[in-house]
């Protein structure tokens, strides 16, 4: 499979202030993003996600190391004809209308007027902005700006789409719309590389993820191989039994949480569940729910994050 994005020891140090104090924003990033599918670039705020994206899109220069997009060096301007980019919290020319802005972006890609008109028409449908394109961008809401931003990123029908925090600041409806567009782009065979710190969004749509913490890559791979597919614990909700009764059971090692008349406890395996069910039956208690839990992206993320902190 062709590699969409590849970096080797990519590093960036910023110098700031009068004394040019150095801050290492990214160290020795070795990232491989395969073509096709959705790649989630995860990390807490300040992890270096935006720095990486700016390096990939040529907005900043690497201090050392190198990066390639579709086999070409990131400094090569020609590769950007096959790239689409939506920056974080996009801010576009507010004096332009959405339509003028999209035409301008198409012109920058060297598209002729006929092609632009056709492409803009289909993009407005895709991002559900039909009928709103003649409004000035200053009159757009945050969600509308994000959608027109997505449209400009797709104007050249790119093979790779890089989105920096595309869901940030959006309401649940807006987030779902952006997720749906990303899934559609995947169906169209494009590679979507997006950064986020909203793990639930990433878990829903990503094929692969990479976790970046304090400028260093901590983990990278397919979600199904990174996350433990086995059941790690079973949450059980009980009624008509007391906390003291449960506490006396030798096979329940985790603390019991009490919510009014309901007890919530977590068991490590199915053997313990079966023993608990027998006991509840004996005591004439009531099982309200049984929820098996698998490792989530959040569990893995927190594990990596705590390891770095420690």
């Amino acid at each position: 499979m062709q590699t969409a994005i590849e970096t080797q020891n990519l590093s960036k140090t910023f110098k700031s202030g009068f004394l040019l104090k150095e801050t290492q924003a990214l160290s020795d990033l070795n990232l491989t993003v395969a073509s096709g599918g959705i790649f989630g670039f995860l990390g807490p705020n300040g992890a270096g996600k935006t720095t990486t994206i700016k390096l990939l899109t040529g907005l900043i220069r690497a201090t050392s190391g190198e990066g390639k997009i579709l086999g070409k060096p990131i400094q090569d301007v020609s590769v950007r004809t096959r790239l689409g980019f939506l920056p974080e919290r996009p801010y576009f020319y507010e004096y332009l209308t959405g339509l003028e802005f999209l035409h301008f972006c198409g012109e920058l890609h060297g598209m002729n007027k006929t092609d632009r008109i056709q492409k803009i028409e289909s993009l407005l449908e895709l991002v559900q902005m039909k009928g709103l394109e003649t409004r000035q961008l200053r009159r757009y809401s945050k969600g509308m700006l994000q959608r027109i931003g997505l449209a400009q990123a797709l104007i050249n029908d790119p093979e790779i789409v890089i989105l920096d925090e595309p869901m940030s600041g959006l309401d649940p409806v807006g987030r779902k719309e952006v997720r749906d567009i990303m899934l559609l782009l995947k169906e169209m065979g494009k590679t979507v590389f997006f950064s986020t710190h909203i793990l639930s969004d990433a878990e829903l749509i990503c094929d692969q993820v990479a976790i970046l913490i304090q400028g260093k890559l901590k983990n990278q791979g397919k979600l199904e191989t990174l996350l433990n597919p086995k059941v790690t614990s079973i949450d059980v909700c009980l009624q008509n039994v007391t906390e003291q009764q449960i506490g006396a059971l030798d096979f329940v090692s985790t603390p019991v949480k009490v919510y009014e008349h309901t007890l919530l406890l977590s068991l490590e395996n199915e053997g313990k569940l079966s023993r608990l069910m027998d006991w509840v039956h004996q005591e004439s208690g009531k099982i309200v729910s049984i929820t098996p839990r698998k490792e989530t992206l959040e569990d893995m993320f927190m594990e990596e994050f705590n390891a770095v902190k420690a």
């Binding site: 950007r80 920056p87 996009p90 576009f92 990123a153």
Partner: peptide
């Protein structure tokens, strides 16, 4: 930051 999407184009 209007320059960002511009310079990410060719």
């Amino acid at each position: 930051r209007t320059i960002y999407p511009l310079l990410a184009k060719p």
